[in-house]
Design a protein around this nucleic acid. Structure first.
Lengths: 237, 237
DNA sequence: GAGTGGTCTAGACCACCCC
DNA sequence: GGGTGGTCTAGACCACTCG
């Protein structure tokens, strides 16, 4: 449908298929214009997608080149889906969710600030443990304003809140701001994640936003460190 | 110099100065065209920078809106420099580096693959502990091909390898691919980072690239978890 | 239906790299 | 000096939101 995405996909496939090897120069923008029969800006936008993905680099005055990366890394990059919840990232596995807590409370000052709501508004206060193939993977502490996300019940929590938000409420999720740290488990986590007190966890603190710019979720997830890797590509401006 | 960056900066400052409050609609693209006397594509590119930063959202058919974020988060986002080494991120502190190991070796198969070199090429094999204000912050295990980065000596390691690469060798760093995990310290780290064996560390595994697409560094950094937070903004496509 | 941002065009000039 | 990608223009049509 959208030309630049189709072209980006096409080039990406060619790279992954080994059409262009590591370090090799891609066709010039002008040549690709002719090849795909589009304007240069469209080609630029397509190739810029691949730069963001980390597959190629561009040098003014020289050309566009495939990065010198490992096949394994290349696949990683290509599948990189920066934005998915537990349900999506563990597709194909048998998932189970245990609800530890499910209340409605007033947010404390800090959380109210992060969600940009008042301390006398109400938020869900949820704690869940998520299992994949019978193994505990992560414990999630979630706070959501009930005004923005009404109607959550236990059956929603047992499946996927994100699915409910997008398909039942028909809301669109736009972005997430994350902070990542390493921490030690507390007593609750030692019990539910079945780890020892010396077992490190990866903490992901997240504020998630709807496409109208409102924050709809503040969550902290503590992941078993043997079950999660966080990947990122950063490009110098 | 570059118009869209200047405009992006100007709008960013206005948002941070409280000119536009959380949730408020920005002027229309058409209006900004008139205001800055540029074409619409230039305005689009400027505002897209702010979308990437996480400060605003755009909705086709509706307009552009400031995200509902905390002042503190806003500042974080605005300073977000995805790409810096130890020296940059700890500016203003008193830095010290201890060299634990500095050899030249053949890379093993896995590292050769990640750097896209042969196992009979040579790489520096470096281990360093970095201190800020007298406190150990991170231990870095670095491998670099000597062909790409020639002439490293102890005085370079004691300061900043990145500074040497950019200012002495006049090479440009383009990007880094990172994987982040939580781990436990090993004996070496317990000693040098002055932590107990139950103290969690944040591992950052990184492959860094020059602007010609060649990988010039494979490194693993183990950070004291009380001294590092990794931040990220992800936008749904 | 009026108005928004998203995509795309055809063309121009510029900064930069490399020969 | 010849050719690269980077920026920018003026204009067009489209998909979408909202009253």
């Amino acid at each position: 449908m959208i030309k630049y995405q189709e072209i980006a996909n096409d080039i990406r496939k060619n790279i992954l298929a080994g059409q262009y090897l590591s370090g090799v120069q891609l066709p010039l923008e002008k040549e690709m214009c002719a090849q795909y029969n589009v304007s240069r800006i469209t080609i630029k936008k397509a190739v810029d997608e691949l730069v963001k993905l980390g597959l190629v680099i561009k040098r003014r005055g020289a050309g566009t080149f495939v990065k010198s990366i490992d096949d394994e890394d290349a696949k990683d990059l290509s599948m990189a889906r920066q934005f998915t919840g537990f349900t999506e990232t563990n597709k194909g596995k048998t998932l189970r969710t245990e609800i530890i807590k499910f209340d409605v409370v007033h947010p404390d000052k800090e959380i109210a600030a992060k969600l940009q709501i008042a301390t006398d508004d109400f938020v869900y206060d949820i704690i869940r443990v998520r299992f994949a193939d019978g193994m505990p993977i992560v414990i999630e502490y979630t706070k959501m304003p009930i005004n923005l996300i009404p109607g959550i019940k236990k059956d929603v929590l047992l499946k996927s809140i994100y699915f409910y938000i997008q398909h039942q409420l028909k809301l669109k999720i736009q972005s997430a701001h994350r902070s990542i740290r390493a921490i030690s488990p507390n007593a609750l986590e030692i019990e539910h994640l079945k780890v020892r007190d010396s077992f490190p966890l990866l903490e992901v603190e997240q504020i998630a936003f709807l496409d109208d710019g409102r924050a709809f979720e503040y969550s902290i997830s503590h992941h078993r460190s043997d079950q999660i890797v966080f990947k990122s590509v950063s490009i110098r401006q």
